[in-house]
């Protein structure tokens, strides 16, 4: 599903240059649930953003579902993001003047789906995350956990091949974190490929594979026995 080879990325700040990714080799098969870990500043978000075509690597190759991602213009990049990728952010990133339903429907709007069908699909995903009763609430009328569930519903609505989550539980307490992880595990059970950046070992333990970054390199990559959330609560 995802295949990257010798990926490099550095940031220029003024005169100094910061080499963040120093040759990442990494591949993910369909249906995997991967946790990317590492200390702060190790380049986790940078890697995820490149995988999400929100940012571009300086060198190396990236193939997403058989499609080489290289030198895309912004229009094509947008279309790939819409078709292939779903994003979940630490700070939810919901549009605050749109209702939960409209937020979930937004990626479908950019696919050109008519409003009636769009709302039906969005509603079915809201139901999936258990928020059909809150469909007309604005984001600031929802709790953090609810917001993240709306964000997950939105990421899923366009039916992406890969779900990318950058510290999805970073802003949530343990109990809500586990609820969100339960949802993510459920989605993964249905066969969706998911990559999660996290600091928390217990969250990483709920994934099937752990990748650890240090100083821009993968220092550890292992498959683990997944901890089911239901067993924890």
């Amino acid at each position: 599903m995802i295949e990257i080879k010798d990926l490099h990325k550095s940031y220029k700040t003024g005169k100094s240059e910061l080499h963040v990714l120093k040759g990442i080799n990494f591949s993910v098969k369909e249906g995997e649930l991967v946790a990317i870990m590492g200390s702060s500043g190790s380049g986790k978000s940078t890697l995820l953003n490149i995988l999400g075509i929100l940012d571009e690597a300086d060198s190396g190759t990236y193939v997403l579902d058989g499609v080489p991602i290289k030198n895309l213009n912004e229009t094509l990049a947008s279309q790939y993001r819409n078709k292939f990728l779903g994003f979940v952010f630490q700070s939810f990133n919901l549009i605050n003047y749109k209702s939960a339903l409209d937020n979930v429907a937004l990626p479908l709007y950019y696919q050109g789906i008519k409003s009636k069908e769009r709302n039906e699909i969005a509603m079915s995903y809201l139901k999936k995350v258990g928020l059909e009763t809150h469909s007309h609430h604005l984001p600031n009328e929802l709790s953090g956990g609810q917001k993240q569930r709306v964000a997950i519903a939105r990421a899923m609505a366009s039916h992406p091949k890969v779900l990318l989550a950058d510290e999805p539980t970073g802003a949530l307490d343990t109990k809500t974190s586990y609820e969100v992880m339960e949802l993510i595990q459920g989605i993964n059970d249905e066969g969706k490929t998911i990559l999660i950046v996290t600091h928390e070992p217990d969250i990483a333990a709920m994934c099937k594979r752990n990748v650890i970054l240090r100083d821009g390199l993968i220092v550890e990559d292992k498959y683990i026995t997944q901890q089911r959330v239901t067993a924890n609560v």
């Binding site: 947008s78 279309q79 993001r81 990133n93 937004l106």
Partner: peptide
């Protein structure tokens, strides 16, 4: 800016 960033992450093209 942030909202526009979100929209683009969700698939809004520059023309959109």
């Amino acid at each position: 800016t942030k909202e526009i960033g979100i929209r683009r992450a969700l698939g809004a093209t520059p023309w959109d």
